[in-house]
Design a protein around this nucleic acid. Structure first.
Lengths: 194, 194
DNA sequence: TGATTTATTGTCATACATGACAATTTACTC
DNA sequence: GAGTAAATTGTCATGTATGACAATAAATCA
């Protein structure tokens, strides 16, 4: 009974607009008004759906990290024919820039925000832990004779190279940098053979 | 003639206070008033010395990057007895956390700000280019038979591992992560021998 | 002492971000 | 059509960040 709820749809619209605003103005640079305008609605209705600013940021963090996790799972499912090591490399260092500059700015903003927000901090920490563990598992499949801790260390190293690459993306560095990062990742993985 | 100027001293005080405020409240989280109070002065006098907010941020970027550059030069001078590779490793991965969490938050905030400020962006880009070039030169000294481009790629990889480590510091990750990053850096450098 | 330069304080106007809430409209069920 | 729950709009009060500027105090030199 009563009018049907648009909550899910509207919330998604708002978070989409929030991401675009962050890319354009920075996380702290955009007001609820900016976001509402970007989403094509009034600030009042935005507040009606997502609550206050803190709630909004938390919702965004949840959605962004969730998307990252499913994107890895999707990639693994879609590239099941490749060797695990190749699956990992193509995920972390795609030939075509998979992750747009926009989404990079968003996650970087959230990391920065985690400095002053324990809830976000724990969320990101758990995600990184999960990502490294998954990656280490893939490496171990391809290098069954390597010690588990070595796989973990290399997995983290490869992820670190990827993360750094993404965090520097807004600087617009020459392609040379990205290529070197990938080559280093391959070198690290190759070191597991010895 | 006239009253002697305190500009240099006051500017330094202000930038010090700015860094502390950034560490506590974030770059966009602190107002000119917060900074002035932290520096023990009024907002009016702060503005008198450093101009508006944009000027203040630019001054900070200049000072921070300048300090990073001299810190490398100082380290190289102080550790001239070591092999170049060791000099680089001890600089990027000090046993004791050389760079305080505070200074990490500051530089990360500036990188985030560079997204919307081309002047800061160019400054940081030039710094990274300089740092990688210097590091590649050190590696080349120790590995004269390696190709220059390989030294450059490994130098960038090692710096990427360090940068990522620093950028994740606010998350408070277990020591395991830092140790793995350093081990990966050593592995990369070792790969130059082959 | 007087002139000059800078330091320092105080205040005002403006703009804006946010939270709260009342009022109205819309869509669905019985 | 009546009832109901949600959508949507509009407005107000409050706190605050900022820029501008006037006014006063202090230090140095001629």
């Amino acid at each position: 009974m009563g009018r049907p709820s648009l909550a899910d749809q509207r919330t998604a619209q708002i978070l989409d607009a929030f991401e675009r605003c962050i890319a354009r103005l920075g996380l702290d640079g955009c007001s609820l008004n900016d976001i509402a305008t970007e989403a094509g609605m009034k600030r009042s209705i935005l507040r009606h759906y997502v609550g206050n600013r803190e709630d909004l940021v938390h919702s965004l963090a949840d959605r962004v990290i969730g998307k990252y996790q499913t994107s890895l799972q999707d990639h693994l499912a879609a590239s099941a024919a490749l060797r695990p090591t190749e699956q990992l490399l193509t995920y972390l260092f795609p030939r075509r820039n998979r992750s747009s500059t926009e989404s990079i700015v968003v996650i970087e903003s959230l990391i920065a925000a985690s400095e002053c927000d324990p809830e976000i901090r724990d969320r990101i920490r758990a995600y990184i832990d999960w990502l490294v563990t998954q990656s280490a598992r893939l490496l171990k499949e391809d290098h069954p004779h390597s010690k588990k801790e070595n796989c973990w260390a290399v997995a983290y190293g490869v992820i670190a190279l990827c993360f750094n690459q993404e965090s520097l993306t807004p600087l617009g560095l020459p392609v040379k940098y990205a290529r070197s990062a990938r080559r280093c990742a391959e070198t690290l993985i190759a070191s597991l053979d010895s």
